[in-house]
């Protein structure tokens, strides 16, 4: 499943997408994120799955444009993306 967390508002598109088929639930992204955006737990959109997957914390979903801002900038790679070995995480902006 491709899970897109975030939003689109007048100022642009701000989605963090997680490919749950690639995600191993290892939690390295949770450790790497300096702002507590990522979390790991049961796949809440696939009720019959037993595997744990990464997602964007519910309290952050409406403000990632702001929370993730310090990790963005020219020449920077977001730490969550860098930490993800299977390459399951992507930012839309």
């Amino acid at each position: 499943m491709k899970a897109n967390y975030g939003y689109k508002d007048g100022s642009g598109d701000f989605f963090i997408s997680i490919d749950t088929d690639k995600c191993t639930g290892c939690g390295l992204c949770v450790e790497a994120c300096p702002n507590g955006v990522m979390t790991v737990g049961e796949d809440e959109n696939d009720p019959f799955s037993e595997d744990e997957v990464a997602s964007v914390d519910e309290t952050e979903r409406k403000k990632i444009k702001y929370t993730c801002a310090p990790c963005k900038g020219e020449g920077k790679t977001e730490p969550c993306i860098k930490a993800c070995e299977p390459g399951a995480i992507n930012h839309s902006w």
């Binding site: 702001y66 801002a69 900038g73």
Partner: peptide
């Protein structure tokens, strides 16, 4: 303020 400060933190 928290939104504006995040923007400032970016730079």
């Amino acid at each position: 303020a928290s939104r504006i400060v995040s923007m400032i933190r970016k730079i």
